[in-house]
Amino acid sequence: MPELNSFGQSVGDVVPGWEGRPAPELVTLEGDYVRIVPLDSVHYADLFAAVCGPEDDSLWTYRPIPKPTSLATLWMHLADVLDSPNLTFALIPLEGERAGLASGIASFYRIDPQTGQVEVAGVLYARSLQRTRGATEAIHLMMRYAFDDLGYRRFEWKCDSLNEPSRRAALRLGFTYEGQFRNHMVTQGRNRDTDWFSITDGEWPRVRTAHEAWLAPGNFDDTGHQRTSLAARK
C-alpha cells in the first residue's frame, strides 16, 4: 500500500538525502573491447568510411537524415550534433577489423541532473561493430558512468517503434519497456511513434552483474563466440 500524507493522498516513497547530481561530461571511458571518447572532427573521416559505404543506407533509416553521400555532408551533420546541448562520443573498437578507428557514435540526451536522469540516444554502429563485445560494452560503460560515477536514478533508451533491432537491443541490455508515444515526431518526412525503455538505479546492480558476467573474457571461446548469452544471465 502506498503511504498517505496528512491529506489522505497517496504519495511516493521518500528518497533519503536526495540532491541534484553532477551533469555528465565529455569524458573518456575505457573498456576491454571499446574506447569511448568525445566526438571530434578528427573522427569524421573514419566514421564516413565506417557508416556511409555503398551498403550502409539501411543504417540511416531511423535517423534524422538519410545516409550522407559525401564526407562534407557527414561533416556538416556531425558539426550540428556537436552544437546541440547533447554530449556525443565516438566509439573506437579495440579489436576486430577496425580496431583503433572510430566506428560508431552515441550521445547523452535529455540530461537532467536535478532529477538524476539521462538518455542514451543517437546510437549508430558500423556493421563491423554490430553484434560484438564492443557494442554491448559501449552501452554498459555509459550506464556505469551515469549510475556509479554520477549517482543517477534513471537511464533511458528510446527508439522508433518500428525499429525492431533497437527494440531487441534494449530488452537484451536489461531495459524495461514503458510504453509508446504516438505521433511523437516526424523523421525524414515520416511519422514516428517512439517506444520508451528505462533502467532504474534499483535495477542497475542486477543489470551490471549480468553485463559484467557476459563481458568477462571467460564467456568467450577462442574464436570470440559467446558461451552464454546475455539474455540467459539476466
Results as ranks from 00 to 15, higher is better:
P85Y: 02
M76L: 13
D80K: 12
A50W: 05
A102P: 15
D57L: 09
G100R: 14
S70N: 07
Y152H: 01
R63L: 15
T136M: 08
S161W: 10
Q114N: 08
G122P: 00
G134Q: 10
L91D: 13
I105D: 09
R131E: 12
H43W: 10
S70C: 06
K158M: 13
D83V: 01
G96E: 11
D57M: 05
R133V: 15
Q130H: 10
T88L: 01
Y152P: 00
L91F: 11
A102N: 15
M143Y: 00
A72I: 13
S70Q: 02
K158V: 15
A90N: 13
I111A: 03
H77N: 06
N163A: 03
I111V: 00
P93K: 10
D40L: 02
F89T: 01
G174L: 06
D56I: 03
R131C: 11
Q117D: 07
V81S: 03
V81K: 07
S128M: 07
Y152D: 03
S70W: 05
C52L: 05
D148W: 05
Q114E: 08
R98W: 14
A79R: 14
Y44W: 09
L78H: 10
T115N: 12
G104N: 12
V81I: 03
F48C: 06
E95G: 14
V81R: 10
K67N: 09
V42D: 15
L82N: 09
N86C: 07
L74E: 07
E55Y: 04
R153F: 01
L59P: 00
K158P: 00
R168Y: 04
L162M: 13
T132Y: 11
E55W: 05
L39F: 02
S58K: 12
A79F: 01
R167N: 08
G122W: 01
L162W: 06
L129M: 15
V118G: 01
G53P: 00
R127P: 01
L162P: 00
W75F: 07
E97N: 08
A146W: 00
T132L: 05
V118L: 05
V51M: 13
E156V: 06
L124Y: 04
E97D: 15
S103W: 11
I105L: 12
C52I: 00
P165H: 04
D160E: 03
S128N: 09
E97L: 10
F48E: 11
R133C: 10
G116L: 06
A49P: 04
F89L: 03
K158Q: 14
L91H: 12
S103G: 13
I139G: 01
S41A: 12
G122N: 11
A72N: 12
S103D: 14
D56M: 06
A72P: 06
L87I: 00
Y109C: 10
S41T: 14
D57G: 08
F48V: 00
I139Y: 02
A90R: 13
A170R: 02
